[in-house]
Computed example of a mutant assay.
Amino acid sequence: MNARQPAGKRQVSATAFPNSHRLTKTDEFSSVFGFRKALKSTHFLLHYRLRAAEEVAGARLGLVVAKRLVRRSVDRNLIRRLARENFRMMRCRLPSRDLILRLAARPEPLDRRALADEIRKLLEKMITPER
């Protein structure tokens, strides 16, 4: 017997990536870009903004992968999947911030493992305390 839970009663695991962990609105993206704080790596910029105390705790992620840098949609989607997966696995350790991961340079060649490592290292920089 397989009983299903009603749609409103679903439990979210610690490693899930529901809409509450995503930046979805233009205003949310604008506020992060307006804060003008970012970490840089070879191919990515990680923009971030501290969240106010009255906001729900936890990190949220937005992604920007420009078509002019990566023409094929398959490759853009791969980069997004890698970013979401790394964020999902590290979210419980990240401070309460809004993050936008933006592809800033064309990755030539498109190496899945190297991009995943680069994304993971950027997110790990968010975990270490600022000096």
Rank of each mutant, 00 (worst) to 15 (best):
M1G: 04
M1Q: 06
Q5D: 08
R10F: 07
V12R: 12
A14F: 10
T15R: 09
F17W: 06
P18Q: 10
N19K: 07
S20A: 12
S20I: 07
H21F: 15
R22I: 05
L23V: 11
T24N: 14
K25T: 05
F29C: 08
S31F: 01
F33A: 01
A38P: 04
A38L: 11
K40N: 06
H43K: 02
H43E: 01
L45P: 05
L50D: 15
A52Q: 08
A53T: 01
E54A: 08
E54N: 13
E55A: 13
V56A: 04
G58F: 01
A59H: 04
R60S: 15
L61N: 03
L61H: 04
L63P: 06
V64Q: 00
V65F: 05
A66M: 05
A66Q: 03
K67P: 09
R68M: 00
R68W: 00
R71N: 15
R72A: 03
S73V: 03
D75T: 06
R76Q: 05
N77T: 08
L78D: 14
R81C: 11
R81M: 11
F87A: 08
F87N: 06
M90W: 11
M90S: 14
R91P: 05
R91I: 04
C92P: 03
R93Q: 13
L94H: 07
L94V: 11
P95R: 06
R97C: 15
R97E: 12
R97M: 15
L99M: 13
L101M: 10
L103M: 06
A104C: 06
A105W: 15
E108T: 11
P109D: 09
P109I: 02
L110Y: 02
D117G: 12
E118Q: 09
I119Q: 03
R120S: 04
L123I: 10
E124H: 05
K125R: 10
T128M: 14
E130A: 09
